[in-house]
């Protein structure tokens, strides 16, 4: 991309312009981030009045704690399950909607709106259907199919419920991107393959899917970020990390350890690790996007 025109002889103006953004970034990101790093090297004494420097002890304790390892495994399984189901379903639906069929704009609207539903509300919707006492679906499962539904006792059911709730909301987001991606696939390319006798499936996997790979990669990162970090409201509302610690994902543990257990050093150490993880993902994503823009 060509370089943009630059205004000359303006020494102070650019600084004034970025000032508000920089102030906000510094106060609400760099300062807390620095505090997290700082706090992660300390523990509070029993009265909460004094900080004691402990070096890397908070981190070492974390890595030695089986609960942290478990939380990592649960988060990864959950994020992968949400990513895989939400992306597969969305791609399938986008392919269906992309065919030149009547009603396509109606379908589009009807599939996009859940994007606007809060993650927390998605949790409540599914919680209400599967509540063991009042849930209609829980009642159906138990009385008609003989499956006792109790996600507060059964960890597999709990995992399933949060995965469905999180994916239910995320399909819309992926659908928007996949549909846009499909619409930018050059039609002559696909037609030429059809004339050469390629079946619809071959056309999809050999031509369309490879052309979609930038979209797929972008969505992969975004969905992992969603599954790992943005699903806190569902966990908090639907399972509270339980039963036991079966659905305690990493962000839920940061919150629990910090807000409920008041282990500030431990919570800060976890924050630092998660921040590094997100920043790593951001850089990967950004490099990827920039390469696409400038080639």
């Amino acid at each position: 991309m060509a370089k943009q025109y630059e205004f000359l002889n303006q020494r102070r103006l650019p600084y004034l312009l970025v000032l508000p953004q920089m102030v906000i970034v510094i106060i609400f990101f760099f300062w807390p981030a620095a505090q997290a790093v700082w706090q992660s090297f300390f523990i509070q004494d029993a009265f909460g009045s004094r900080l004691i420097f402990v070096g890397f002890e908070n981190y070492l304790k974390l890595f030695a704690d089986p609960a942290y390892g478990e939380s990592f495994v649960v988060s990864t399984a959950f994020a992968l399950a949400v990513t895989a189901s939400a992306m597969t379903i969305a791609l399938f639906l986008a392919v269906q909607a992309n065919r030149e069929i009547r009603l396509s704009s109606f379908y589009k609207t009807m599939l996009i709106w859940p994007y606007a539903v809060a993650t927390m509300v998605a949790g409540v919707l599914w919680l209400f259907m599967f509540n063991p006492n009042v849930g209609v679906v829980a009642w159906l499962l138990e009385k008609k199919l003989g499956i006792a539904w109790s996600h507060l006792l059964n960890s597999r059911q709990a995992f399933l419920l949060i995965t469905v709730a999180a994916s239910w909301k995320q399909v819309a987001y992926n659908f928007v991107f996949f549909l846009a991606g499909l619409q930018s696939v050059p039609a002559p390319l696909v037609e030429a393959a059809a004339i050469d006798g390629a079946s619809p499936l071959v056309r999809f996997w050999r031509i369309i899917f490879p052309l979609l790979s930038p979209t797929t990669f972008y969505l992969l990162v975004m969905n992992l970020v969603y599954g790992f970090f943005e699903t806190f409201p569902i966990i908090h509302q639907v399972t509270a990390g339980g039963p036991g610690k079966a659905t305690q994902i990493l962000v839920y543990k940061v919150w629990r350890d910090g807000v409920i257990n008041l282990d500030l050093g431990g919570s800060a150490a976890q924050s630092v690790i998660l921040m590094l993880l997100v920043i790593g993902l951001t850089v990967v994503q950004f490099r990827f996007i920039e390469r696409k823009v400038t080639y």
């Binding site: 953004q21 920089m22 990101f29 962000v251 910090g258 919570s267 800060a268 950004f286």
Partner: peptide, 26 residues
């Protein structure tokens, strides 16, 4: 410019969930 750019872009995908306690303290 470069410094401003990167310090803004590092926050691109950073959800508040991962830095709640320190932000709360601020």
């Amino acid at each position: 410019r470069k410094l401003c750019f990167w310090s803004i872009f590092i926050t691109l995908m950073l959800p508040v969930e991962v830095r709640i306690m320190p932000t709360y303290k601020v």
